[in-house]
C-alpha cells in the first residue's frame, strides 16, 4: 500500500544555483493523453510557437481541454512538465523560491515549478495565470521575454533558463483580462472552445475501454445528440464515470433505454448549472 503511494510522490532534488543550494521539484508525471482530433492544428501552432521561442497563452472556458493540450505538448520536452496552479494568494516568492525552516543548509530554499522548468529545460504550465496578483505577475516578466531569467532576492540568485525552457499559460475568458505587460509577453494566444459532440465522443471512447462501459457510451451518445448547451469534456467524463458507477452498483444495463436513463440521471447531478 505504502509503496504505491510513494510512487506517486513528486521528488525534490537538490540543485546548486550559483553558490546556493535549493530544492527543486521534479517534473510532473502527467497522463499520456489522446491528442484531440479537433485540436491538431492547435497542436501544430503551439509547436511552432515553441520552435520560435515564444511562450503561449491558451484561452478557453473550463473543461475545453487546455490542460490536456499542455500535457500532450509536454511530451516534446525532455525536461518534462512543471505545473503551477496560480491563485490570488500567491506571492512573488511562491512563484520563484520560498524559505524553509530547517537547519540543513542544503534544503533551506525550495524552488518553484518555474525554477525547476528553467533549470531542466522543461515546459512550465501556469494554470489560471490571470488569477495572480499584479505584484506576482511582474516577477514573471523577465522569465517570459528575451531575458529568459528569474531572480530571487530572498535566496540571492539570478537564474538564466535552459535553452529548452518554454512557458504555457492558461486563462479563462471569465477572468479579468491580463495587464498589458504580461499579455504582450504571453503571445501567441490561442483561443479554444468546447469540443464538438463528435470529438467529445472520441475522447470518451479513448478514456473508457471496458466492456461494461459500452452500453453507457451508447446512452451518452444519445444524450449529447440531444444536448442543447455545449458540454465540457471534464463534465462529459464525469457523467460517463458516474453512470458506469451507478450501473455497476445497481441492477446493470439491460437495454439501451436503461443506459439512456442512467446517463440522464448522472447528467442531472453533474450538470447542476444555475
Amino acid at each position: 500500500m505504502g509503496s504505491v503511494l510513494q510512487a506517486e510522490v513528486k521528488e525534490y532534488t537538490s540543485e546548486v544555483v550559483g553558490t546556493i543550494s535549493i530544492l527543486v521539484p521534479g517534473p510532473e508525471r502527467h497522463q499520456k493523453l489522446v491528442p484531440f482530433v479537433e485540436h491538431k492544428p492547435l497542436v501544430a501552432d503551439c509547436r511552432a510557437a515553441f520552435a520560435a521561442g515564444c511562450p503561449i497563452r491558451l484561452e478557453g472556458p473550463p473543461g475545453c481541454g487546455k490542460t490536456s493540450l499542455v500535457h500532450h505538448l509536454a511530451d516534446d520536452f525532455p525536461g518534462g512538465l512543471y505545473e503551477m496552479v496560480c491563485t490570488h494568494e500567491m506571492e512573488p516568492g511562491d512563484l520563484i523560491c520560498t524559505p524553509r525552516l530547517t537547519e540543513d543548509p542544503q534544503g533551506r530554499y525550495v524552488g518553484s515549478g518555474l525554477v525547476g522548468a528553467m533549470l531542466h529545460g522543461g515546459l512550465a504550465y501556469l494554470d489560471e495565470v490571470s488569477k495572480l496578483s499584479e505584484k506576482s505577475m511582474s516577477c514573471l516578466v523577465a522569465a517570459l521575454d528575451h531575458r529568459r531569467s528569474i531572480a530571487s532576492s530572498l535566496a540571492g540568485f539570478s537564474l538564466v533558463a535552459h535553452p529548452s525552457f518554454r512557458v504555457a499559460a492558461s486563462v479563462n475568458p471569465s477572468d479579468p483580462p491580463l495587464p498589458d505587460f504580461l499579455a504582450q509577453r504571453l503571445t501567441p494566444t490561442f483561443r479554444m472552445d468546447h469540443l464538438s459532440p463528435k470529438a467529445l465522443e472520441a475522447v470518451i471512447q479513448a478514456h473508457f475501454t471496458g466492456s461494461d462501459t459500452m452500453p453507457i457510451l451508447e446512452g451518452f451518445r444519445a444524450f449529447i445528440a440531444g444536448a442543447k448547451a455545449p458540454i465540457a469534456s471534464r463534465e462529459a467524463l464525469k457523467i460517463v464515470q458516474f453512470a458506469t458507477g451507478m450501473a455497476r452498483t445497481g441492477s446493470g444495463v439491460k437495454s439501451r433505454r436503461d443506459a439512456e436513463v442512467l446517463v440522464a440521471k448522472a447528467a442531472e447531478h453533474v450538470l447542476r448549472r444555475e
Binding site: A44, D45, R47, A48, A49, A51, A52, G53, C54, D145, Q184, R185, T187, P188
Partner: peptide
C-alpha cells in the same frame, strides 16, 4: 503594434511555415 508583439508575430509565422 508593440515591438514585442510584432516580433512574436514574425517569429511565430516563420516558425509555422518552417515546420510545415
Amino acid at each position: 503594434v508593440s515591438a514585442r508583439c510584432w516580433l512574436a508575430f514574425k517569429k511565430f509565422s516563420h516558425a509555422r511555415l518552417s515546420l510545415a
